[in-house]
Computed example of a mutant assay.
Amino acid sequence: MSTLAAPKAAAPPAGPPPSGGGPGGGPGPRRGGVRAWATRAPLLPALVFLIAVTQLPFAATLVISLFDWNSLSPDERAFAGFANYAEVFTDESLRESVFTTVLLTASVVIVSVVLGLLLALLLDRTFAGRGIVRTLLITPFLIVPVSAALLFKHALYNPEYGLLNGAWSWIASLFGSDSPAQPDWISDMPLTAVVAALVWQWTPFMMLILLAGLQSRPAEVMEAARLDGASSWQTFRYLTLPHLRRYLELGILLGSIYIVQNFDAVFTLTSGGLGTANLPYSIYQTFYQAHEYGLASAAGVVVVLGTIVIATFALRVVSSLFSEEVSRS
Protein backbone atom coordinates (compact mmCIF):
# COMPACT_ATOMS: atom_id res chain seq x y z
CA MET A 1 0.00 0.00 0.00
CA SER A 2 1.46 3.27 -0.99
CA THR A 3 1.36 6.14 1.38
CA LEU A 4 0.94 9.73 0.34
CA ALA A 5 3.47 12.11 1.78
CA ALA A 6 2.06 15.23 3.43
CA PRO A 7 3.01 18.36 1.57
CA LYS A 8 5.69 20.40 3.22
CA ALA A 9 4.82 23.83 4.53
CA ALA A 10 6.14 26.62 2.44
CA ALA A 11 9.21 28.23 3.94
CA PRO A 12 8.89 31.89 4.88
CA PRO A 13 10.53 34.23 2.45
CA ALA A 14 13.95 35.39 3.33
CA GLY A 15 14.38 38.97 4.35
CA PRO A 16 14.01 41.30 7.32
CA PRO A 17 10.98 40.89 9.60
CA PRO A 18 8.00 43.21 9.16
CA SER A 19 8.52 46.67 10.52
CA GLY A 20 6.92 47.57 13.82
CA GLY A 21 8.15 44.68 15.94
CA GLY A 22 4.66 43.74 17.12
CA PRO A 23 2.67 40.63 16.37
CA GLY A 24 0.91 40.73 13.05
CA GLY A 25 3.11 43.54 11.82
CA GLY A 26 1.34 46.07 14.06
CA PRO A 27 3.11 48.76 16.03
CA GLY A 28 5.24 47.40 18.82
CA PRO A 29 5.48 48.60 22.39
CA ARG A 30 8.27 51.01 21.58
CA ARG A 31 6.41 52.69 18.74
CA GLY A 32 3.22 52.79 20.85
CA GLY A 33 5.10 54.53 23.66
CA VAL A 34 6.55 57.08 21.26
CA ARG A 35 3.12 57.73 19.80
CA ALA A 36 1.62 58.17 23.30
CA TRP A 37 4.33 60.67 24.24
CA ALA A 38 3.82 62.50 20.94
CA THR A 39 0.11 62.78 21.77
CA ARG A 40 0.78 64.12 25.25
CA ALA A 41 3.63 66.43 24.31
CA PRO A 42 1.39 69.46 23.47
CA LEU A 43 0.00 69.27 27.03
CA LEU A 44 3.40 69.46 28.71
CA PRO A 45 3.72 73.29 28.57
CA ALA A 46 0.29 73.63 30.20
CA LEU A 47 1.27 71.09 32.86
CA VAL A 48 4.54 72.89 33.59
CA PHE A 49 2.72 76.23 33.78
CA LEU A 50 0.09 74.76 36.13
CA ILE A 51 2.77 73.39 38.44
CA ALA A 52 4.67 76.68 38.37
CA VAL A 53 1.68 78.86 39.28
CA THR A 54 -0.06 76.54 41.76
CA GLN A 55 2.13 73.88 43.29
CA LEU A 56 5.37 75.85 43.71
CA PRO A 57 3.67 78.76 45.56
CA PHE A 58 1.85 76.25 47.77
CA ALA A 59 5.13 74.48 48.54
CA ALA A 60 6.69 77.85 49.42
CA THR A 61 3.69 78.68 51.65
CA LEU A 62 4.06 75.31 53.36
CA VAL A 63 7.73 76.02 54.11
CA ILE A 64 7.06 79.57 55.35
CA SER A 65 4.31 78.27 57.66
CA LEU A 66 6.96 76.38 59.64
CA PHE A 67 8.85 79.61 60.53
CA ASP A 68 8.26 82.39 63.03
CA TRP A 69 8.66 85.17 60.47
CA ASN A 70 7.65 88.79 60.88
CA SER A 71 8.69 91.05 58.03
CA LEU A 72 9.15 93.98 60.46
CA SER A 73 11.92 91.99 62.18
CA PRO A 74 13.51 89.96 59.37
CA ASP A 75 16.66 89.16 61.35
CA GLU A 76 14.68 87.36 64.06
CA ARG A 77 13.29 84.72 61.74
CA ALA A 78 13.45 81.24 63.30
CA PHE A 79 12.15 77.74 62.72
CA ALA A 80 8.93 77.22 64.70
CA GLY A 81 7.74 73.80 63.57
CA PHE A 82 3.99 73.41 63.98
CA ALA A 83 3.64 76.26 66.49
CA ASN A 84 1.91 78.44 63.89
CA TYR A 85 -0.69 75.75 63.24
CA ALA A 86 -1.31 75.43 66.97
CA GLU A 87 -1.85 79.19 67.16
CA VAL A 88 -4.34 79.04 64.28
CA PHE A 89 -6.57 76.75 66.33
CA THR A 90 -5.97 78.40 69.72
CA ASP A 91 -5.92 82.13 68.94
CA GLU A 92 -9.29 83.64 69.85
CA SER A 93 -9.60 85.95 66.85
CA LEU A 94 -8.69 83.19 64.42
CA ARG A 95 -11.14 80.80 66.10
CA GLU A 96 -13.86 83.41 65.71
CA SER A 97 -12.98 83.82 62.03
CA VAL A 98 -13.25 80.04 61.57
CA PHE A 99 -16.71 80.09 63.18
CA THR A 100 -17.74 83.05 61.02
CA THR A 101 -16.52 81.21 57.93
CA VAL A 102 -18.60 78.13 58.78
CA LEU A 103 -21.69 80.22 59.58
CA LEU A 104 -21.33 82.33 56.43
CA THR A 105 -20.78 79.30 54.21
CA ALA A 106 -23.69 77.31 55.65
CA SER A 107 -26.10 80.27 55.46
CA VAL A 108 -25.25 81.21 51.88
CA VAL A 109 -25.25 77.64 50.57
CA ILE A 110 -28.52 76.60 52.23
CA VAL A 111 -30.46 79.70 51.18
CA SER A 112 -28.99 79.60 47.65
CA VAL A 113 -29.92 75.93 47.21
CA VAL A 114 -33.51 76.48 48.39
CA LEU A 115 -34.04 79.54 46.17
CA GLY A 116 -32.24 77.86 43.26
CA LEU A 117 -34.51 74.83 43.56
CA LEU A 118 -37.64 77.00 43.52
CA LEU A 119 -36.41 78.93 40.47
CA ALA A 120 -35.40 75.71 38.70
CA LEU A 121 -38.89 74.28 39.26
CA LEU A 122 -40.33 77.48 37.80
CA LEU A 123 -38.09 77.42 34.72
CA ASP A 124 -38.80 73.73 34.16
CA ARG A 125 -42.33 74.70 33.17
CA THR A 126 -43.25 76.07 29.77
CA PHE A 127 -44.49 79.66 29.70
CA ALA A 128 -44.21 82.72 27.49
CA GLY A 129 -40.89 84.54 27.87
CA ARG A 130 -39.12 81.70 29.65
CA GLY A 131 -35.88 82.35 27.73
CA ILE A 132 -35.82 86.01 28.76
CA VAL A 133 -36.57 85.15 32.39
CA ARG A 134 -33.81 82.52 32.42
CA THR A 135 -31.29 84.98 30.99
CA LEU A 136 -32.19 87.63 33.57
CA LEU A 137 -31.91 85.12 36.41
CA ILE A 138 -28.45 83.99 35.26
CA THR A 139 -27.11 87.56 35.04
CA PRO A 140 -26.10 88.00 38.74
CA PHE A 141 -23.72 85.04 38.48
CA LEU A 142 -21.91 86.71 35.56
CA ILE A 143 -21.12 89.92 37.46
CA VAL A 144 -17.62 90.36 38.91
CA PRO A 145 -17.79 89.64 42.68
CA VAL A 146 -16.32 93.02 43.66
CA SER A 147 -18.80 94.80 41.39
CA ALA A 148 -21.68 92.87 42.94
CA ALA A 149 -20.51 93.82 46.45
CA LEU A 150 -20.17 97.48 45.45
CA LEU A 151 -23.64 97.36 43.92
CA PHE A 152 -25.13 96.15 47.18
CA LYS A 153 -23.08 98.54 49.30
CA HIS A 154 -23.99 101.73 47.43
CA ALA A 155 -27.14 101.03 45.41
CA LEU A 156 -29.03 99.02 48.04
CA TYR A 157 -27.56 99.39 51.53
CA ASN A 158 -26.64 103.08 51.57
CA PRO A 159 -28.71 104.74 54.34
CA GLU A 160 -29.13 108.01 52.42
CA TYR A 161 -29.87 107.07 48.82
CA GLY A 162 -30.07 103.27 48.81
CA LEU A 163 -32.98 101.49 47.18
CA LEU A 164 -33.87 99.58 50.34
CA ASN A 165 -34.38 102.74 52.39
CA GLY A 166 -36.19 104.36 49.46
CA ALA A 167 -38.61 101.42 49.29
CA TRP A 168 -38.99 101.50 53.07
CA SER A 169 -39.89 105.21 52.97
CA TRP A 170 -42.40 104.62 50.17
CA ILE A 171 -44.10 101.77 52.05
CA ALA A 172 -44.20 103.87 55.23
CA SER A 173 -45.77 106.77 53.33
CA LEU A 174 -48.62 104.47 52.27
CA PHE A 175 -49.48 104.07 55.94
CA GLY A 176 -49.26 107.80 56.74
CA SER A 177 -45.68 107.99 58.06
CA ASP A 178 -43.71 110.79 56.40
CA SER A 179 -40.31 110.31 58.07
CA PRO A 180 -39.70 106.66 59.02
CA ALA A 181 -36.44 105.57 60.60
CA GLN A 182 -33.75 104.94 58.01
CA PRO A 183 -31.80 101.84 59.06
CA ASP A 184 -28.11 101.48 58.28
CA TRP A 185 -28.24 97.97 56.91
CA ILE A 186 -24.53 97.20 57.07
CA SER A 187 -24.10 98.53 60.61
CA ASP A 188 -27.33 97.06 62.01
CA MET A 189 -27.08 93.61 60.42
CA PRO A 190 -23.56 93.20 58.94
CA LEU A 191 -23.41 89.42 58.53
CA THR A 192 -26.91 89.33 57.05
CA ALA A 193 -25.89 92.01 54.56
CA VAL A 194 -22.90 89.92 53.42
CA VAL A 195 -25.04 86.77 53.22
CA ALA A 196 -27.69 88.55 51.13
CA ALA A 197 -25.11 89.80 48.63
CA LEU A 198 -23.58 86.33 48.24
CA VAL A 199 -26.97 84.62 47.99
CA TRP A 200 -28.00 87.01 45.22
CA GLN A 201 -24.90 86.11 43.25
CA TRP A 202 -24.84 82.35 43.85
CA THR A 203 -28.52 81.44 43.56
CA PRO A 204 -28.29 81.41 39.70
CA PHE A 205 -25.43 78.91 39.91
CA MET A 206 -27.51 76.54 42.04
CA MET A 207 -30.47 77.11 39.75
CA LEU A 208 -28.50 76.04 36.67
CA ILE A 209 -27.27 72.83 38.28
CA LEU A 210 -30.73 71.87 39.56
CA LEU A 211 -32.40 72.82 36.29
CA ALA A 212 -30.02 70.46 34.49
CA GLY A 213 -31.07 67.75 36.94
CA LEU A 214 -34.76 68.43 36.38
CA GLN A 215 -34.38 68.25 32.62
CA SER A 216 -32.52 64.92 32.87
CA ARG A 217 -35.44 63.11 34.55
CA PRO A 218 -36.69 60.05 32.61
CA ALA A 219 -39.76 61.25 30.74
CA GLU A 220 -41.42 57.82 30.74
CA VAL A 221 -41.23 57.58 34.53
CA MET A 222 -42.81 61.01 35.00
CA GLU A 223 -45.55 60.16 32.49
CA ALA A 224 -46.27 56.87 34.26
CA ALA A 225 -46.63 58.74 37.57
CA ARG A 226 -49.17 61.11 36.00
CA LEU A 227 -51.15 58.23 34.52
CA ASP A 228 -51.22 56.52 37.93
CA GLY A 229 -52.82 59.62 39.43
CA ALA A 230 -49.86 60.91 41.47
CA SER A 231 -50.23 64.50 42.63
CA SER A 232 -47.62 67.19 41.98
CA TRP A 233 -46.33 66.93 45.55
CA GLN A 234 -46.11 63.13 45.38
CA THR A 235 -44.24 63.33 42.09
CA PHE A 236 -41.81 65.83 43.55
CA ARG A 237 -41.39 63.97 46.85
CA TYR A 238 -40.90 60.45 45.54
CA LEU A 239 -39.46 60.96 42.03
CA THR A 240 -37.99 64.43 41.51
CA LEU A 241 -36.27 64.91 44.85
CA PRO A 242 -34.47 61.50 44.87
CA HIS A 243 -33.36 62.16 41.29
CA LEU A 244 -31.99 65.57 42.28
CA ARG A 245 -29.99 64.22 45.23
CA ARG A 246 -26.70 64.05 43.31
CA TYR A 247 -27.26 67.49 41.81
CA LEU A 248 -28.04 68.95 45.21
CA GLU A 249 -24.86 67.43 46.61
CA LEU A 250 -22.84 68.83 43.70
CA GLY A 251 -24.29 72.33 44.11
CA ILE A 252 -23.69 72.30 47.87
CA LEU A 253 -20.10 71.11 47.51
CA LEU A 254 -19.14 73.50 44.71
CA GLY A 255 -20.82 76.41 46.48
CA SER A 256 -19.01 75.56 49.71
CA ILE A 257 -15.64 75.50 47.92
CA TYR A 258 -16.16 79.09 46.79
CA ILE A 259 -17.82 80.56 49.89
CA VAL A 260 -15.18 79.09 52.23
CA GLN A 261 -12.51 81.15 50.49
CA ASN A 262 -14.63 84.20 49.69
CA PHE A 263 -12.86 87.49 50.32
CA ASP A 264 -14.44 90.08 48.01
CA ALA A 265 -17.80 90.57 49.72
CA VAL A 266 -16.38 90.76 53.25
CA PHE A 267 -13.62 93.16 52.24
CA THR A 268 -15.89 95.43 50.17
CA LEU A 269 -18.97 95.56 52.39
CA THR A 270 -17.65 95.57 55.96
CA SER A 271 -13.83 95.47 55.74
CA GLY A 272 -13.95 92.55 58.15
CA GLY A 273 -15.55 94.60 60.92
CA LEU A 274 -18.63 94.00 63.07
CA GLY A 275 -17.94 90.30 63.42
CA THR A 276 -17.85 89.49 59.70
CA ALA A 277 -14.14 88.66 59.36
CA ASN A 278 -13.92 85.18 57.89
CA LEU A 279 -10.73 83.14 57.66
CA PRO A 280 -9.56 84.50 54.27
CA TYR A 281 -9.94 88.07 55.53
CA SER A 282 -8.10 87.19 58.76
CA ILE A 283 -5.28 85.78 56.65
CA TYR A 284 -5.18 89.05 54.72
CA GLN A 285 -4.99 91.03 57.96
CA THR A 286 -2.32 88.76 59.43
CA PHE A 287 -0.17 88.92 56.32
CA TYR A 288 -0.50 92.52 55.09
CA GLN A 289 -1.24 94.39 58.31
CA ALA A 290 0.40 92.38 61.09
CA HIS A 291 3.17 91.19 58.71
CA GLU A 292 3.15 87.75 60.35
CA TYR A 293 4.16 85.71 57.33
CA GLY A 294 4.48 82.38 59.12
CA LEU A 295 1.12 82.57 60.91
CA ALA A 296 -0.70 83.77 57.79
CA SER A 297 0.84 80.96 55.73
CA ALA A 298 -0.26 78.38 58.30
CA ALA A 299 -3.83 79.69 58.19
CA GLY A 300 -3.70 79.64 54.39
CA VAL A 301 -2.59 76.00 54.41
CA VAL A 302 -5.52 75.14 56.68
CA VAL A 303 -7.94 76.79 54.22
CA VAL A 304 -6.37 74.93 51.28
CA LEU A 305 -6.58 71.58 53.05
CA GLY A 306 -10.21 72.17 53.95
CA THR A 307 -10.97 73.13 50.35
CA ILE A 308 -9.21 69.99 49.08
CA VAL A 309 -11.38 67.82 51.34
CA ILE A 310 -14.56 69.44 50.01
CA ALA A 311 -13.29 69.25 46.41
CA THR A 312 -12.57 65.53 46.81
CA PHE A 313 -16.20 64.87 47.69
CA ALA A 314 -17.31 67.12 44.81
CA LEU A 315 -15.21 65.13 42.32
CA ARG A 316 -16.71 61.89 43.60
CA VAL A 317 -20.20 63.26 43.08
CA VAL A 318 -19.32 64.40 39.55
CA SER A 319 -17.83 61.01 38.67
CA SER A 320 -20.92 59.24 40.02
CA LEU A 321 -23.15 61.51 37.91
CA PHE A 322 -21.15 60.67 34.78
CA SER A 323 -21.32 56.96 35.63
CA GLU A 324 -25.10 57.14 36.00
CA GLU A 325 -25.45 58.96 32.65
CA VAL A 326 -23.23 56.40 30.89
CA SER A 327 -25.13 53.44 32.36
CA ARG A 328 -28.45 55.06 31.43
CA SER A 329 -27.37 55.61 27.82
Rank of each mutant, 00 (worst) to 15 (best):
T3P: 00
A5P: 11
P7C: 08
A10H: 09
A10V: 12
P16N: 11
P17M: 14
P17T: 09
P17Y: 10
P18Y: 07
S19R: 15
G22P: 04
P23L: 13
P23S: 11
G25L: 07
G28W: 03
G28A: 06
R30L: 12
G33I: 09
G33L: 14
A46K: 09
L47T: 11
F49P: 06
F49H: 05
A59S: 09
T61P: 05
L62Q: 04
L62R: 02
V63N: 07
I64N: 08
L66Y: 05
F67Q: 09
N70A: 06
L72V: 10
S73K: 10
P74Q: 02
E76A: 12
R77A: 08
R77F: 06
A78K: 12
Y85S: 07
E87R: 14
T90D: 09
D91G: 10
S93K: 15
E96F: 00
T101M: 00
T105I: 01
V109Q: 01
I110S: 14
V111P: 00
V111K: 02
V114G: 03
G116P: 03
L122Q: 08
D124W: 08
R125I: 08
F127D: 07
G129W: 05
I138A: 15
T139D: 07
P140L: 08
L142V: 15
A149Q: 01
L150K: 07
A155M: 11
L156D: 02
Y157N: 00
N158L: 10
G162R: 01
G162V: 02
L163W: 05
L164E: 01
W170N: 10
F175L: 14
S177Q: 13
S179F: 12
A181C: 08
W185E: 04
S187L: 15
L191R: 06
T192K: 06
A196H: 05
L198H: 04
W200M: 08
M207L: 11
L210P: 03
A212M: 06
G213F: 02
S216P: 04
V221E: 12
E223Y: 10
A224Q: 04
D228A: 13
S231I: 07
S232F: 12
Q234K: 12
R237L: 13
R237Q: 11
L244E: 04
R245P: 06
E249Y: 13
D264A: 14
A265G: 06
T268R: 06
S271K: 10
S271F: 11
S271Q: 15
S271L: 11
A277P: 01
Y284G: 00
Q285N: 14
F287A: 10
H291I: 08
E292H: 11
E292M: 03
E292V: 00
A296L: 01
A298S: 07
A298K: 00
V304L: 12
I308G: 10
V309F: 08
I310E: 02
F313D: 05
S319C: 12
F322S: 14
E324C: 09
E325G: 11
S327G: 12
